[in-house]
Amino acid sequence: MPKVRFNTKIYKKKAIQNAVSAYSNLARFSLKQTNSYIEVKIDKVSSGFNNIIIGEFSNYVLALTKKCL
């Protein structure tokens, strides 16, 4: 199961949540918050998106975080 960790000093929680809801039709996401990270686990990825979903999702979170500033 692929997972990605976002540092809360850089990424906004709201941006991650919005990105999850935007990508929810492509995969199943589960969020877990630790001290300074939000861990996003991704599974049940739609076929054809396996290789790119983590990268594209990270880019989308980055774009939303920039928008939040």
């Binding site: 540092n7 990424y11 594209e56 880019n59 980055l62 774009a63 975080t65 920039k66 500033l69």
Partner: peptide, 20 residues
């Protein structure tokens, strides 16, 4: 903010990930 703006300019060419 400058780092985020610079990274944003590259999201069409690369997958960008930040950590601190």
């Amino acid at each position: 903010e400058a780092i985020l703006n610079a990274c944003y300019a590259f999201i069409d060419r690369a997958y960008v990930f930040l950590d601190s």
